[in-house]
Computed example of a mutant assay.
Amino acid sequence: MPLGIVIRRSPGVTRWARWSWKATSVLPGAADADWREIRVEGDVTEFHAGTLPLEMHGADAEAYMHGLSAEVPCVYVVLRESDVADKPFEVLLVTASPYEAQDYADNGEDLVEKVPMPEGLVAWVRDFAMAHHEDEEFKKRRRDKKRIDKVEDGIGDERISQISDVYRSPASAKRRRLH
Protein backbone atom coordinates (compact mmCIF):
# COMPACT_ATOMS: atom_id res chain seq x y z
CA MET A 1 0.00 0.00 0.00
CA PRO A 2 1.45 3.41 -0.90
CA LEU A 3 1.84 5.73 2.09
CA GLY A 4 2.53 9.44 1.77
CA ILE A 5 4.89 10.74 4.43
CA VAL A 6 4.06 14.12 6.00
CA ILE A 7 6.98 15.95 7.59
CA ARG A 8 6.58 19.10 9.69
CA ARG A 9 9.18 21.86 9.80
CA SER A 10 8.96 24.17 12.80
CA PRO A 11 11.39 26.70 14.25
CA GLY A 12 14.20 25.19 16.31
CA VAL A 13 14.28 25.69 20.04
CA THR A 14 18.02 26.37 20.27
CA ARG A 15 20.29 28.75 18.44
CA TRP A 16 22.23 25.77 17.03
CA ALA A 17 19.25 24.21 15.26
CA ARG A 18 17.41 26.62 12.99
CA TRP A 19 14.63 24.11 12.19
CA SER A 20 13.07 21.12 13.88
CA TRP A 21 11.87 18.33 11.57
CA LYS A 22 9.40 15.60 12.48
CA ALA A 23 7.37 13.01 10.58
CA THR A 24 3.84 13.62 11.82
CA SER A 25 1.44 11.54 9.74
CA VAL A 26 0.97 9.18 6.82
CA LEU A 27 -1.48 9.40 3.94
CA PRO A 28 -2.69 5.92 2.83
CA GLY A 29 -3.08 5.58 -0.91
CA ALA A 30 -1.28 8.87 -1.65
CA ALA A 31 0.07 9.73 -5.07
CA ASP A 32 3.76 10.38 -5.67
CA ALA A 33 5.15 13.61 -4.25
CA ASP A 34 8.55 15.18 -3.82
CA TRP A 35 8.60 17.61 -0.89
CA ARG A 36 5.37 19.30 -1.91
CA GLU A 37 4.21 21.96 0.53
CA ILE A 38 0.73 21.06 1.82
CA ARG A 39 0.12 23.41 4.77
CA VAL A 40 1.60 26.61 6.21
CA GLU A 41 0.63 28.09 9.59
CA GLY A 42 2.95 30.91 10.64
CA ASP A 43 6.48 29.49 10.87
CA VAL A 44 5.27 25.87 10.74
CA THR A 45 5.18 24.16 7.36
CA GLU A 46 4.07 20.64 6.50
CA PHE A 47 5.42 18.84 3.45
CA HIS A 48 4.34 15.72 1.62
CA ALA A 49 7.95 14.51 1.51
CA GLY A 50 7.39 11.39 -0.54
CA THR A 51 5.30 8.29 -1.06
CA LEU A 52 6.69 4.87 -0.27
CA PRO A 53 5.11 1.43 -0.35
CA LEU A 54 4.29 -0.20 2.97
CA GLU A 55 5.48 -3.72 2.27
CA MET A 56 4.24 -6.54 4.47
CA HIS A 57 5.84 -9.98 4.74
CA GLY A 58 4.20 -13.07 6.23
CA ALA A 59 7.36 -13.95 8.15
CA ASP A 60 7.07 -10.65 10.07
CA ALA A 61 3.51 -11.25 11.27
CA GLU A 62 4.63 -11.56 14.89
CA ALA A 63 6.30 -8.13 14.69
CA TYR A 64 3.13 -6.59 13.24
CA MET A 65 1.05 -8.14 16.03
CA HIS A 66 3.48 -6.71 18.58
CA GLY A 67 3.16 -3.25 17.01
CA LEU A 68 -0.62 -3.45 16.92
CA SER A 69 -0.74 -4.35 20.61
CA ALA A 70 0.69 -0.94 21.56
CA GLU A 71 -1.61 1.63 23.13
CA VAL A 72 -1.39 3.62 19.89
CA PRO A 73 -0.52 1.42 16.87
CA CYS A 74 2.15 3.12 14.77
CA VAL A 75 4.14 2.90 11.58
CA TYR A 76 7.78 3.86 11.59
CA VAL A 77 9.29 6.29 9.11
CA VAL A 78 13.04 6.05 8.51
CA LEU A 79 14.72 9.28 7.40
CA ARG A 80 18.32 9.97 6.43
CA GLU A 81 19.90 13.41 6.16
CA SER A 82 20.37 14.68 2.62
CA ASP A 83 22.87 17.07 1.05
CA VAL A 84 20.16 18.79 -0.98
CA ALA A 85 19.18 22.15 0.56
CA ASP A 86 15.46 22.11 -0.27
CA LYS A 87 15.13 18.40 0.65
CA PRO A 88 16.80 18.03 4.05
CA PHE A 89 15.87 14.36 4.46
CA GLU A 90 15.61 11.36 2.21
CA VAL A 91 12.67 9.15 3.15
CA LEU A 92 14.16 5.64 3.14
CA LEU A 93 11.46 3.38 4.48
CA VAL A 94 8.06 3.11 6.08
CA THR A 95 7.34 -0.06 8.06
CA ALA A 96 4.75 -1.46 10.45
CA SER A 97 7.37 -3.66 12.12
CA PRO A 98 8.83 -2.27 15.36
CA TYR A 99 11.63 -4.85 15.04
CA GLU A 100 12.73 -3.53 11.65
CA ALA A 101 12.50 0.06 12.94
CA GLN A 102 14.75 -0.87 15.85
CA ASP A 103 17.37 -2.19 13.42
CA TYR A 104 17.47 1.19 11.68
CA ALA A 105 17.51 3.08 14.99
CA ASP A 106 20.52 1.06 16.16
CA ASN A 107 22.78 2.16 13.29
CA GLY A 108 22.94 5.75 14.57
CA GLU A 109 22.85 7.29 11.08
CA ASP A 110 19.11 7.31 10.49
CA LEU A 111 16.26 9.12 12.16
CA VAL A 112 13.34 6.82 13.00
CA GLU A 113 10.01 8.52 13.67
CA LYS A 114 7.00 6.80 15.21
CA VAL A 115 3.80 7.93 13.47
CA PRO A 116 0.28 6.90 14.58
CA MET A 117 -1.58 4.71 12.09
CA PRO A 118 -4.93 5.92 10.73
CA GLU A 119 -7.82 3.58 11.63
CA GLY A 120 -8.15 2.14 8.13
CA LEU A 121 -4.44 1.28 8.08
CA VAL A 122 -4.70 -0.40 11.49
CA ALA A 123 -7.45 -2.65 10.12
CA TRP A 124 -5.44 -3.44 6.97
CA VAL A 125 -2.29 -4.36 8.94
CA ARG A 126 -4.33 -6.37 11.47
CA ASP A 127 -6.05 -8.38 8.72
CA PHE A 128 -2.69 -9.17 7.13
CA ALA A 129 -1.06 -10.11 10.44
CA MET A 130 -3.97 -12.33 11.50
CA ALA A 131 -3.93 -14.13 8.13
CA HIS A 132 -0.21 -14.92 8.42
CA HIS A 133 0.38 -15.24 12.18
CA GLU A 134 1.04 -18.71 13.55
CA ASP A 135 1.24 -19.26 17.28
CA GLU A 136 4.32 -21.21 18.27
CA GLU A 137 3.62 -24.08 20.58
CA PHE A 138 5.44 -23.81 23.90
CA LYS A 139 8.09 -26.47 24.25
CA LYS A 140 9.30 -27.13 27.73
CA ARG A 141 13.01 -27.66 27.90
CA ARG A 142 13.98 -31.02 29.33
CA ARG A 143 16.89 -31.57 31.64
CA ASP A 144 19.82 -33.54 30.30
CA LYS A 145 20.12 -37.11 31.59
CA LYS A 146 23.86 -36.64 31.97
CA ARG A 147 25.47 -38.29 34.99
CA ILE A 148 27.35 -35.85 37.14
CA ASP A 149 28.84 -38.29 39.65
CA LYS A 150 31.52 -39.54 37.24
CA VAL A 151 35.20 -38.57 37.36
CA GLU A 152 35.77 -35.35 35.45
CA ASP A 153 38.71 -35.20 33.08
CA GLY A 154 40.23 -32.01 31.75
CA ILE A 155 39.37 -29.72 34.66
CA GLY A 156 42.00 -27.18 35.54
CA ASP A 157 45.60 -27.12 34.39
CA GLU A 158 47.46 -30.41 34.35
CA ARG A 159 50.73 -28.60 35.13
CA ILE A 160 49.50 -27.99 38.66
CA SER A 161 50.18 -31.06 40.70
CA GLN A 162 48.02 -30.15 43.68
CA ILE A 163 44.57 -31.62 43.80
CA SER A 164 43.33 -28.89 46.15
CA ASP A 165 42.92 -26.15 43.55
CA VAL A 166 42.48 -27.50 40.03
CA TYR A 167 41.39 -24.11 38.69
CA ARG A 168 44.51 -22.21 39.79
CA SER A 169 46.72 -20.83 37.01
CA PRO A 170 50.33 -22.07 36.53
CA ALA A 171 51.72 -18.54 37.09
CA SER A 172 50.37 -18.43 40.64
CA ALA A 173 51.87 -21.90 41.30
CA LYS A 174 55.32 -20.66 40.21
CA ARG A 175 55.10 -17.63 42.48
CA ARG A 176 54.34 -19.82 45.46
CA ARG A 177 57.37 -22.01 44.76
CA LEU A 178 59.66 -18.95 44.56
CA HIS A 179 58.58 -17.57 47.92
Rank of each mutant, 00 (worst) to 15 (best):
R9K: 15
R9Y: 06
P11V: 10
P11I: 07
G12I: 03
G12K: 06
A17N: 15
A17T: 14
R18V: 10
W19C: 14
S20M: 10
K22C: 02
T24L: 08
T24C: 11
L27M: 13
L27S: 01
D32T: 12
D34K: 12
D34C: 09
D34P: 00
R36Y: 01
R36C: 09
E37L: 15
I38C: 11
I38D: 12
R39I: 06
R39M: 08
E41G: 07
E41T: 11
G42W: 07
D43P: 12
D43K: 13
D43A: 13
V44D: 09
E46I: 05
F47Y: 15
F47H: 04
H48R: 08
G50F: 00
L52D: 05
L52T: 03
L52V: 09
E55P: 01
M56H: 07
M56W: 05
M56Y: 09
M56C: 07
H57A: 10
G58L: 07
D60P: 02
A61F: 02
A61N: 07
A61E: 00
E62F: 05
A63F: 11
Y64H: 05
Y64Q: 02
Y64C: 03
Y64D: 00
M65C: 14
M65W: 06
S69W: 10
A70V: 04
A70M: 14
A70C: 12
C74F: 03
V75F: 06
V75R: 02
Y76S: 03
V77Q: 01
V78L: 01
L79A: 04
R80P: 00
D83A: 10
D83L: 13
V84R: 15
D86P: 00
K87P: 08
K87A: 11
P88S: 08
P88F: 06
F89P: 00
E90L: 11
L93T: 05
V94K: 03
T95A: 06
T95I: 04
A96S: 13
A96H: 03
A96L: 10
P98Y: 04
P98D: 09
P98F: 04
Y99D: 12
Y99G: 00
E100M: 11
A101S: 09
D103G: 13
Y104S: 00
A105Y: 01
A105I: 05
D106I: 04
D106T: 10
D106R: 10
N107Q: 12
G108F: 01
G108S: 09
E109M: 13
D110Y: 04
V112H: 00
E113M: 07
E113C: 14
V115M: 08
P116S: 12
P116M: 06
M117F: 02
M117E: 01
M117A: 12
P118W: 07
E119P: 14
V122C: 13
A123V: 13
A123N: 14
A123H: 13
V125E: 05
D127V: 04
D127P: 05
D127H: 12
D127I: 01
D127N: 14
F128I: 08
F128H: 13
F128P: 10
F128C: 12
